[in-house]
Amino acid sequence: MMRWLDLPLRLLARAGVLVTVLFLLVPLVVACVLSFDDRSFLGPFPPREWSLRWYRGFLDNPAYMDGFWMSVQVALAAGAAATIIGTLAALAVSDPRLPGRAVWEALFLSPKFVPTVVIGFSLLVFTARIGIFDPFTRLVLGHTIITLPFTMRAVLASLIGLRRSHMEAAMSLGATEARALWDVAVPAARSGIVAGAAMAFVLSFDEVAVSLFLSDAFTQTLPIALVAEMRANLNLTIAAVSTVFLAATLLLVLLLDRLIGIERLAGDVGARG
């Protein structure tokens, strides 16, 4: 009896999952296919002629290439900074002796919940006020702040397995507290540190809102270059760039899955507010 009653509900749930997956995947597939379209306008789907002209266009356009290298540099610098600061913050917050741990943790996680546009604007005003005008420095600063919650969350999650007794054992054996952190806590947190670093890199790489405020005409990240190009002349180069972007991200995620497992990574990304 139960089973018969459950059946419609189960079918409905499955249909829901299917529709969601379609909505997630179909646009991506369409964009990928269009990037190989030979026509120079957005014509009926599917295209009849194929070519790699948009990929060539991507490689030939200095705005894109400059943007790509800028993005790589910013993502590396911001990712490194966010990983180091996030790791230290996680170690500090996971120490039971720190007064007001919950407050500190919430503070470090807050960039997740502040609208990125607000962060971008505030940073623009703030950096101008304290005399930082170099757009690269500004971008790294902004990206560090917005990726910090992710690196810290990832490290905190991996530190759950670390028991206080591990640290104390190291200290009783002659390690200073700093030494014990390095020998015991950091290895325990390694998977979290790697996951956090990768997350930070990817998030920085495709970040738009904060970058819009902090970049200038000569210092653009790839997503900003894309947005600018799209406004100026909408053509399928964007589809080609998107495809490259997608492939690169997918590659990184696969690599991470091999290294540390996708669940850990997904668990930390899922909480994005």
Partner: peptide
């Protein structure tokens, strides 16, 4: 004297072996 300079051997209830 801080813990790391006391030369006291400790066996914890959960053993606290370094897993890595």
């Amino acid at each position: 004297l801080p813990p790391h300079r006391r030369d006291i051997g400790l066996v914890f209830q959960d053993y606290a072996l370094f897993p890595h």
